[in-house]
């Protein structure tokens, strides 16, 4: 194949890749929409136990704890009207924290809990050094400026 033709083929391949990416993204979005539930919609929908679904909401402040043997994380996912208890065995993402968003793939257990196979944590746009973590977020950002100036960071 002549080099010029090779390049046009490459351009065509890139175009196909581009269209494929867009289509996959669109179908992934539609799929998610069809089996994605918030705590409220999950309660209303009456899903059978064991069916693979996705749960999304906010981690209820004060609800994160570990099981006695330490392998399972227990927490509550809530939205404005409802909440549901979740069990997860595995390593939690760094940004998994009370008061932040979380999405979990899993299924309902017989006792009404949600058993999660994975966790996806949502992250706000703030970047705050550890030393300032105990302070109120707002005050922390202001202090952060002066702290880093005199080099006490780390």
């Amino acid at each position: 194949m002549k080099p010029k033709h090779q390049r046009l083929v490459l351009a065509l391949v890139a175009l196909v890749a581009l269209i494929s990416a867009t289509l996959i993204a669109a179908s992934a979005l539609r799929e998610e929409a069809s089996y994605f539930y918030t705590p409220s919609s999950l309660q209303a929908a009456n899903i059978e136990t064991g069916k693979a679904i996705r749960l999304g909401g906010m981690v209820k402040p004060g609800s994160i704890s570990r099981s006695d043997d330490g392998t399972t994380v227990l927490f509550t996912v809530q939205d404005a009207d409802a909440s549901i208890d979740v069990r997860y065995r595995g390593i939690t993402p760094d940004l998994f924290v009370e008061g932040s968003g979380v999405t979990a793939d899993g299924r309902l257990a017989a006792n009404g809990d949600f058993v999660a196979d994975n966790l996806l944590a949502k992250h706000d746009e703030n970047y705050i050094p550890r030393e300032l973590a105990d302070m109120d977020m707002h005050a922390a950002q202001k202090t952060g400026e002066s702290l880093s100036e005199d080099g006490t960071a780390k």
Partner: peptide
Amino acid sequence: AWGTWWVWDGRLTSMLILFFMYL
């Protein structure tokens, strides 16, 4: 940080599309 290598959200997908556009 998030718990996943990839999601098809707007930012990641449009950046991937940019890469294919470059090619």
